[in-house]
């Protein structure tokens, strides 16, 4: 894995409750075998990575800064080519990047329309049907009124939702999001999490997102892929995200707090910023 990995004090033993990747899921939405990538010889960012995201549901990818989450996403998307292994896709992916800034001042509608690129011929422009679909995708997130507004003048939360609408307009069945909530305030984080949940539940999309905020995974994900220097582990959120596993993965002390909300048991995560 990373160079930092050799120095890390984390145990390389399997995390309790998590199964190493088995590779037997029937036609996963997205899978990779023996994935290895490096920018220069000798410095592997990722190596020997096996993973599989089943179809449907919300999947969170957790891991420390610099553990290769973003590199993994770029490999899965095909933006980077792996030196080892391969990626298997079940249809095209739609991508929501971490921070989005356009050089040109396109309107929100123009931005959403670009999600239609796979459906628009090389020498063609968006048709009225494309425009209608783009508007509907915006309307889905309550942003149709922003269609003619310049994208750059929208708030961070609105921009993130516009890019999410773009992914929806692409009609891809799998959505990949890179730290979608990292730049958002609490209200917009909550909104985004609900939108992701709804896209999975109501539209049957497969949602894969990275985050360095485990509480988001706890709130929305069904499955978790945890990238640690000792290896990658995946499994259902309740089994993988235990206090012990999180403490080992992050090297920081955390507590899981259980509470009742609307007659349903929920869990939340608290990090303890304690001195050594």
């Amino acid at each position: 894995m990373t160079e930092a990995a050799t120095e890390a004090k984390l145990s390389a033993s399997p995390l309790a409750g998590a199964e190493p990747f088995a590779g037997d899921a029937p036609r996963p939405a997205l899978a990779a075998q023996g994935l290895g990538f490096r920018y220069r010889p000798g410095a592997w960012i990722l190596r020997g990575l096996d993973l599989s995201f089943r179809r449907g549901g919300v999947h969170a990818v957790l891991g420390l800064n610099g553990c290769g989450k973003t590199t993994l996403l770029r490999l899965l998307l095909g933006v980077l080519k792996p030196q080892e292994g391969r990626v298997e896709k079940n249809g095209p992916l739609a991508f929501v990047p971490q921070l989005f800034q356009a050089v040109f001042s396109f309107t929100a509608l123009d931005m959403v329309l670009m999600g239609r690129a796979r459906h628009i011929g090389l020498f063609s422009s968006p048709s009225r049907r494309d425009e209608k679909l783009a508007l509907e995708a915006l309307a889905r997130f309550g942003l149709a009124h922003l269609a003619p507004r310049p994208f750059a003048e929208l708030s961070g939360g609105q921009r993130q939702l516009v890019i999410l609408a773009r992914a929806l307009a692409s009609e891809a069945q799998t959505l990949v999001l890179d730290e979608p909530a990292s730049a958002l305030d609490l209200a917009n984080q909550a909104l985004l999490v609900r939108r992701l949940k709804s896209l999975s539940r109501d539209d049957g999309l497969t949602i894969i997102f990275t985050t360095h905020m485990p509480q988001q995974a706890l709130a929305v994900a069904e499955d978790v892929l945890m990238m640690t220097p000792g290896g990658c582990w995946s499994g259902p959120v309740n089994e993988v995200m235990t206090e012990e596993n999180l403490a080992r993965a992050y090297g920081a002390e955390v507590r899981l707090v259980e509470f009742e909300r609307g007659g349903k048991k929920s869990r939340a995560l608290v990090s303890l910023f304690v001195e050594d």
Binding site: K132, L135, E136, L138, A139, R140, F141, G142, P148
Partner: peptide, 30 residues
């Protein structure tokens, strides 16, 4: 909290109304 998120609450929002707001008189094109 009030703010952009509150304004986007599905309850307060009619997709059809906003959609037609974004359309000009000729139909589908903004």
């Amino acid at each position: 909290p009030a703010g952009p998120a509150a304004a986007e609450d599905p309850a307060a929002f009619s997709a059809q109304a906003a959609l037609s707001d974004a359309l000009d008189a000729s139909g589908a094109i903004v």
